[in-house]
Design a protein around this nucleic acid. Structure first.
Length: 591
RNA sequence: GGGAUCAUAGCUCAACUGGAUAGAGCAACUGCCUUCUAAGCAGUAGGUCGGGGGUUCGACUCCCUCUGGUCCCA
């Protein structure tokens, strides 16, 4: 659809320039980019709308007159052998100049393009190297709902940007050191008795998380618990073999469990980094910056950067004892990444509470002279709140990732059985799992990333309405029609594809929606916003649902009509499958 | 104290980045399963787009201001 818009923009820009010439207006220029293309609110008003308000002043004419005159010019020019790559006609609709595409041609092009593996792809990010960092869990507890949103955003965005032509590298920096890790270690030393997750019958990351929570009990029983945890951290930093062994053991459990959740969520990474390998990075860069006078050292020895001139504060970059803080290693990690894999863009998928941190980080890197600092981007997303407020570990209100998927899968199984579909879907548990993921991911991605969202248990566990399973259901319905055709039903095989049969309003509505797919990929990729794709997938599903109720596919008096509609169903299937993939909603051929 | 961000139907969210009558789902009500899967479709009802200014031919969208929520920095 995008190339149609571009084509008509240029066409209309040309018409308007001729109009200016005819009216002897000196120095009139109009680039195609100055025109805004929009979607008319009703299909009978046309397919692409161009408001004439913004050119009215330059042309010294009222918008409706411009539209009428340009439409007239267009009609006249058609007689002069103007062959169009994107056939259609222009009509003035009040102050708007609207394009009515030639429906048969557009439908024919749609069916041809959608048959390709690259359907829905775009080139807006062609050749760009994009690194995206997401998830970044701590190894002291299992993943929770907030991580699921982060994971879904990161994975979905990588799929979308890849479809837009970018080369992607997904990285995960696992926070496997620090005081919080030592707390779970300490609690395990006191209460664990050397037991393993298997012995307690717990998933290994939940096992570690249990001891992290038990640290709170330890604090009550032992007033020195906090100090002991600090001491443990120091012994870890000093390389104490006993502490390192315990750390390795517990981290192994935590990471194993977290990886299981990743596999279950069907997300993946190209590279894992671990904080214990990177936490010392950045120190040298800060010292260099100090030597170059970019930073300064106070009388106590702390190294600072003064960012007051750009509306940020003074920030500590290195403590007086020479130890790094978070931002120090972020500086080092970014530099290391750019050296190893010179990216055109690095996206950090991190909660919005870190906005300040990233502003400072990017500014510091810029001051260190890294021109690529302008290629860094913080994809800031809002918190997932509960109706009762924010999730809090200490209050036990955290929604655990594994438990949530379990519950969704359980309900999906119930649903399959209640609908009497158990015999048709094949292996129920596998289908239920995919429905659970579809529901979860769509729920998490349909909202714009920036906004805080409310996790409403009832609504998120529902499979009806504007949900992932709705999209999956429409995908399954499209597959069902295609399958029945393969099995010999209907008369489509006796007909041939004739795109002009898709020119009726009812068909055109669906065709036009489907035509938008590549443009949606571009927009979602450029905006770095999966919700655009999620909403589009829903739009396609809804358009298909309306359409197939009124338009029998397999059996029609005219076999050509059957054959033609069958082609359209194939496009629907391809579009839903690819769009759903991009928002991490598993596609189902049967449900 | 400074800064960021959000506010749209009873609830959860959209609105093509400044354009035509602000749209979906949930909840409520009405119809539709001897017809390609009713996880569906069609319809009814529900709105001073937080308040007030401003810019513009045109503002949910941009600017200012106030209110309220959330978060960050010290």
């Amino acid at each position: 659809m995008e190339h149609y818009r571009q084509h008509w923009k240029e066409m209309i820009a040309g018409l308007l320039e001729r109009l200016a010439t005819n009216r002897q207006i000196e120095g009139f220029t109009l680039s195609a980019e100055e025109l805004v293309a929009e979607k008319p609110p009703k299909p009978e008003l046309g397919d692409i709308g161009f408001p004439m308000f913004n050119v009215a002043k330059k042309l010294r004419m009222a918008p409706p007159q411009i539209a009428a005159a340009a439409a007239q010019l267009f009609v006249e020019s058609q007689g002069t052998g103007n062959s169009l790559a994107c056939p259609g006609e222009l009509r003035a609709v009040g102050p708007y100049l609207n394009v009515f595409l030639d429906r048969a041609t557009a439908a024919e092009q749609l069916v041809r393009e959608a048959a390709s593996d690259s359907w829905g792809a775009s080139q807006v990010l062609a050749g760009k190297k994009v690194m995206i960092e997401f998830s970044c869990p701590n190894t002291n507890k299992p993943l929770h709902l907030g991580h699921l949103r982060n994971n879904a955003l990161g994975e979905s965005l990588s799929r979308i940007m890849k479809a837009a032509g970018a080369e992607l590298k997904k990285v995960n920096l696992i926070n496997d050191r620090g005081i919080h890790i030592c707390k779970s270690m300490l609690a395990y030393q006191v209460y664990g008795g050397g037991r393993t997750p298997e012995e307690e019958g717990l998933k290994s990351d939940h096992f570690v998380g249990k001891y992290y929570v038990m640290f709170n009990r330890l604090k009550e029983e032992d007033p020195e618990a906090e100090d002991k945890a600090q001491a443990l951290l120091q012994r870890w930093e000093a390389g104490d073999p006993e502490v390192i062994a315990l750390w390795k053991r517990m981290n192994g459990w935590a990471v194993d469990g977290i990886m299981q959740t990743y596999r279950r969520q069907q997300i993946s990474f190209d590279e894992f980094h671990y904080e214990h390998e990177t936490y010392k990075l950045g120190k040298q860069e800060v010292l260099d910056g100090l030597a170059r006078g970019i930073f300064y050292r106070d009388e106590e020895g702390t190294i600072w950067v003064n960012l007051e001139d750009v509306g940020l504060d003074r920030k500590v970059l290195l403590r007086k004892d020479g130890t790094s803080i978070y931002i120090t290693q972020d500086i080092g990690t970014a530099i290391m990444r750019h050296e190893r894999w010179p990216f055109d863009r690095l996206i950090y998928v991190v909660a919005s509470e870190q906005q300040y941190h990233f502003k400072v980080l990017f500014e510091v890197l810029r001051r260190l002279g890294h021109i690529w600092a302008s290629d860094l981007h913080h994809l800031s997303y809002g918190l997932v709140n509960l109706p009762s407020g924010r999730m809090k570990t200490r209050e036990g209100t955290v929604v655990d990732a594994d438990d949530l998927i379990d519950e969704l899968a359980r309900l999906a199984t119930q649903e399959i059985e209640a609908k009497g579909r158990a015999d048709m879907v094949g292996e129920i548990s596998s289908v239920a799992e995919k429905i659970a993921l579809g529901a979860l991911h769509y729920y998490l991605l349909q909202t714009s990333p920036i906004k805080d969202m409310l996790y409403n248990p009832e609504q998120s566990l529902s499979f009806t309405g504007d949900t992932g399973p709705y999209i999956q259901y429409m995908g399954a319905r499209s597959c069902s029609i295609l399958r029945k055709h393969e099995e010999g039903e209907g008369n489509a095989r006796h007909g041939r594809f004739r795109p002009e049969l898709l020119a009726r309003d009812g068909d055109w509505q669906l065709v036009r929606t489907l035509l938008e797919f590549p443009a949606v990929t571009s927009l979602a990729a450029q905006s770095m916003d999966p919700s655009i794709m999620a909403n589009y997938a829903h739009e396609v599903a809804a358009a298909f649902s309306t359409w197939y109720r009124d338009n029998p596919v397999l059996v029609n008096e005219d076999p050509d009509l059957s054959a033609t509609r069958l082609e359209l169903v194939k496009v629907v299937r391809a579009t839903l499958e690819k769009a759903a993939w991009m928002v991490c909603v598993p596609f189902l051929e049967v449900m």
